[in-house]
Amino acid sequence: MRLIKIFFTTILLFICLTAGAAPKVSEIVKKMDYLYEQIGDISVRVSIVQNKARQGVKNFGFLYFRRDKTDEFLIVAFAPDTEKGNGYLRVGENFWMYRQNTRTFQHISRDESILGTNAKGGDFEKRKLSDLYKPFTDSGGSEIIAEEMLGKREVYKFTLIAKVNDVTYPKQVYWVQKENYLTLKMQSYSLSDTLMQTAYFPKWTQIEGKYIWIQAIFIDEFEKGNKSIVDLSGISTKQLDPKIFTKAYLENLSK
C-alpha cells in the first residue's frame, strides 16, 4: 500500500512539474511542420510590395499553383507590367522560366531570383523545416528554449541551425505562439552570425485544419530601409487540373 502511494505521488509530482515546462524544440518544429504542411493542391494570389531604400516602392503580383502529390508548381506574374505574363514552372527536377516577350522556356536553377524579387525558386519548394534545420543546443547538448512575451502574446523563443548547406540562412531564431504554434516572428542570420533579416507573420488563416500565413513582413536588417510586405489572397485548396502544370498552360495563360 505504501509503495502504491509513493508511485502515485511520484507520478503526480512529475505531472505537476512538467505541466508548465516548455516542450522540446524538436517537438515544436515537428508540430509546426504538421500544422503548416499542405497536402494536396493549392492556388493563391500573391502580392508583394517591395520598398527599397533610394529606389522607391515596387509592386509585384503573381498567381501560384502547387500540387504536392507530384511535386509541381506554377507561377505566373500579373504585375508589374514589365513582368506580366512571365512565369515559372517546376515539374519534378525540371524548373523552367518562361519569358512572354520571346515566348521561350529556359531551364533555370533553384537559386535564381523569382521575378526580380528576393524570393528564389528554392523558396517555393515543399521542404519540411525539420529536414532543413535542427535545434541549437548548449555545450551540454540540451536544446535551448525560452518563454517570453511578444507584444501581448506568449511565445516560445528558440534557435534553429541548418542541417543542410543549401538553405539561404544558416541560423534562424523563431518566436512561436504558445497557444497554437504559429510563427509570429523570425530572425535570420548569415554564416558570420550577423542579423540579416527579420520577418513578421501577423496574419494567419486556417484551411482544412492547416495553417497558412496570409501576410508577412520582411525587414532587411543588413541594408536598412528595405522592406517587403507579402500578402496572400484567394487561397483555394480545390483540386487543380493536371494540365495547369504544363508548358502549354503557362503559354496560354500568358497570352
Binding site: D166, Y169, L191, S192
Partner: peptide, 15 residues
C-alpha cells in the same frame, strides 16, 4: 564596408 553575398552553396554571408 559591410558586404553581403552568397556562398557557393547560396547561403547568405556577411562580412
Amino acid at each position: 564596408i559591410n558586404a553581403r553575398f552568397a556562398t557557393i552553396t547560396k547561403q547568405q554571408q556577411s562580412v
